[in-house]
Design a protein around this nucleic acid. Sequence first.
DNA 1: AAATGCGCCAACCGCAATGGA
DNA 2: GTCCATTGCGGTTGGCGCATT
Length: 352
Amino acid sequence: MGRHSCCFKQKLRKGLWSPEEDEKLLNYITRHGHGCWSSVPKLAGLQRCGKSCRLRWINYLRPDLKRGAFSQDEESLIIELHAALGNRWSQIATRLPGRTDNEIKNFWNSCLKKKLRRKGIDPTTHKPLITNELQSLNVIDQKLTSSEVVKSTGSINNLHDQSMVVSSQQGPWWFPANTTTTNQNSAFCFSSSNTTTVSDQIVSLISSMSTSSSPTPMTSNFSPAPNNWEQLNYCNTVPSQSNSIYSAFFGNQYTEASQTMNNNNPLVDQHHHHQDMKSWASEILHYTEHNQSSETVIEAEVKPDIANYYWRSASSSSSPNQEAATLLHDANVEVYGKNLQKLNNMVFDQSL
DNA sequence: AAATGCGCCAACCGCAATGGA
DNA sequence: GTCCATTGCGGTTGGCGCATT
């Protein structure tokens, strides 16, 4: 145990290699080959242990090293190989001529891991990130699938229902067992009053579902859309359509995360009115709901990749993507409608 | 200009595997 | 089969340099 035997027998140099040491090692191995590494330092006139000499040769002095930045092809290959092999750096290195295991490992830890996270991919599993938000959604979903609700097989037809469905699963949706004729297709109904906004009721609903085991609160009287338009915000960091969803449903309208062109911005999707629940949104950044005539209109910004957005902040201590992740998390915790200014200040960054 | 923070990466460390006596 | 030296590997550290305060 402890320091390798070759290192404590005599006072040996440690730390960075000097040019002179490099030259001695290079000259010796070029002429004689390395042979037994433990004898190299003595024969080459170096005050180093054999292990240190070996490492220096493999990682720096070897003539077949490529050096320089990794190409896009190399980067893709490393990600692909890491997905298959995990942290087996030496095996990965055998597939990248001129690159050392140490170099690849450093590149992975300092660069590729962050890149993958920005794309919403867990660098360990290479699967979509399971975020705090999603974990909280799972709690909500458990509530929704409890005995308080029954499964719905139909769509919401009542045009003016102020109804809402929340789930972390991609359909079918779950609805309360005891519903009135008026709102029989509604998961939850919210009344409009002077004192409580629809948003606040949603906040209350989600909060109660997330933190208590009491029955889901639900208003008994259906009311039409509120007179004053209300902005609602939703966040979702799930990067793939095939994965879990966090979404909202007002009346019979909901949003779709398609990359419809709008003002040449492929990532902003204006209000969609779909009857087909299969095209449910998976990448919603936030909704805007307001009244147009007698109808409620919803606008939504979609985010195919969390990295496409960042939170403009005075603090630059963390990266834009970290800021975005923090913001989305905060928005979820504080729940929708409570933190509108934050979301309104979110800007779109196409350069990322 | 000095102090501090932070990312990168070369090198170290400990452990496992290997091979020879 | 056991011991021990050596090699290989992957996690971790520490120092350097650049950016920010």
